[in-house]
């Protein structure tokens, strides 16, 4: 074979190779990196700044349903209320109050309604020392027993705040005890956690093992 023919052959081979490569690149035979996996939006609950429950004060302020606090729509003003206990000393709740969970304190000793409620006037609260509070002022009643927590709350350390940290630029919002704690069952309720972080991995790539950094 002459050198010329050899050169022509090599050239044709090279050109064909290059054209095949060009075609392969254009047709994306090796593929592009997979698209980023689409993460569905998180439920709006997880960005909601509402408290876990409504305090009586908030309920009155927002003109919500306060019928549950109209004690004398069922009770008789002239007839004193008696609290009944079973053999174990646990309070027996009457039918309309069955939805209450009586778990204030670790030893179930705080289950007499009239430790906090005023037996003479049911729409009021009554502290050990004898001070009377409206249902909407329950925070001060709580403070009559929970001193250190109340002190922290007054300093803005216990409980939720919102609004402005700068008192010159605006007001801070504060919450009553009962905005987060059920007075009859005050332990903070367990919550469903928001979704775990979805790693920066692309579709089809295995996710990091549990606990990996």
């Amino acid at each position: 074979m002459s050198a010329d023919a050899k050169n022509t052959l090599v050239s044709i081979g090279l050109a064909a190779g290059f054209l095949a490569l060009a075609g392969a690149f254009l047709m994306n035979l090796w593929g592009r990196p997979a698209a980023v996996a689409f993460n569905p939006p998180v439920a709006p609950d997880f960005t909601n700044t509402a408290t876990v429950r409504l305090s009586a004060a908030e309920l009155f302020r927002t003109e919500g349903d306060t019928s549950g606090m109209a004690c004398y729509s069922c009770h008789d003003e002239k007839k004193p209320v008696t609290v009944k206990f079973d053999a174990k000393g646990t309070v027996i709740l009457s039918e309309p109050h069955r939805d209450l969970v009586m778990r204030h304190g670790r030893n179930n000793r705080n289950d007499n309604c009239f430790i906090c409620h005023d037996s003479k006037n049911l729409v009021l609260l009554r502290a050990h020392e004898g001070q009377s509070f409206k249902l909407t002022e329950s925070t001060r009643l709580c403070g009559s027993c929970h001193g250190p927590t109340y002190r922290d709350w007054e300093a803005g350390i216990h409980g939720r705040t919102g609004g402005f940290w700068s008192r010159q630029m605006g007001a801070a919002t504060r919450q009553d005890c009962t905005a987060c704690h059920d007075p009859h069952n005050p332990a903070f309720p367990p919550l469903k956690p928001a979704p775990a972080p979805r790693p920066l991995h692309l579709r089809g790539v295995a996710t990091a093992p549990k606990g990996a950094h």
């Binding site: 700044t49 876990v52 216990h158 939720r160 919102g162 940290w165 700068s166 987060c180 903070f188």
Partner: peptide
């Protein structure tokens, strides 16, 4: 002058911020 968003949403009031 406002509180951070993470503080406002914290349901337990675990987060505190200020000057």
């Amino acid at each position: 002058g406002k509180y951070p968003a993470c503080l406002e949403v914290c349901p337990t009031g675990a987060r505190k911020f200020g000057n």
